[in-house]
Design a protein around this nucleic acid. Structure first.
Lengths: 135, 135
DNA sequence: CAATACCCTACCAAGTAGGTGGACTTCATT
DNA sequence: AATGAAGTCCACCTACTTGGTAGGGTATTG
């Protein structure tokens, strides 16, 4: 399951896509419109900025906005930033790989199945972008 | 990601599949062979029993064993018992459905994508069974 | 009686969801 | 050029839940 944080992230991004190319959007505006706790949202947006998805402008007239064209950022990307691995096991994760402990790497029964699941999932999430978030 | 608990569950089940039709298997034996913390394993097996996947026998000569033929229990089943929802959002979960808060049910952008992900995932996990856990 | 599943409680570490307060930056106004 | 309001940025902090560990006691079976 996606964490609540990730769900907030997507809701916030949806709003920013709608306001794309219209200048910086206030955190407080997003918070109000999308009913996301203000301070929590603050952290989420900052994280997305540090990861290169958003840009921000400080001071008066400042706010957050999407860095690249919405069609350039994939949903999989957002999930990885906020929630971490998409795969069901560390040993089949592309971006967060870790050896399974006490599991003979030779032939882990789950391994093969989970690679299938991963590929099926990514096949979708790597092709959907922020642009798809709006109608 | 699957919890460690779920991973243990699959490892334990793998062992039980190998010993299928050979009578009850001791918790301690599974714990040793698969290197799973004994007391933690105890809880996992009990949970799987209550969910109808395993059977147990108390007293001397007792232990745990798989209830139905391994080909009858799907991996999706095990995950749902141990970890809960497989879907990425409650609002697209088949077995653990919940309305999303503050998300216009009419058209949630994520919704559609996550239904695709869910179906792709289940397409695999609903067809793989315990039997597939062994070579 | 001994072996074994079953069950209960307590505990610690880590992660999640969110809040507080304040420092820093920018811009418009004067 | 100084000021002050409007913003982001940032370092903690609290409360709650989850994951995992550990010990000991009870019920049941051979």
């Amino acid at each position: 399951m996606l964490s609540r944080k990730a769900q907030y992230a997507f809701r916030a991004l949806t709003h920013l896509v709608e306001k794309y190319d219209q200048g910086p959007v206030l955190i407080s505006e997003i918070s109000k419109k999308k009913k996301i706790p203000l301070k929590f949202l603050e952290n989420i947006l900052l994280e997305l900025k540090k990861a290169g998805i958003l840009e921000s402008k400080k001071g008066k007239g400042g706010g957050y906005y999407i860095k690249n064209h919405p069609s350039k950022t994939h949903m999989a990307n957002v999930i990885r930033i906020v929630d971490g691995p998409i795969a069901m096991l560390p040993c089949v994760s592309l971006y967060f790989y870790e050896r399974c402990k006490n599991c003979n790497e030779e032939y882990c029964a789950l391994h093969d199945t989970m690679i299938l699941v991963r590929d099926a999932t990514l096949g979708i999430l790597e092709h959907r972008t922020l642009q798809d978030l709006t109608n």
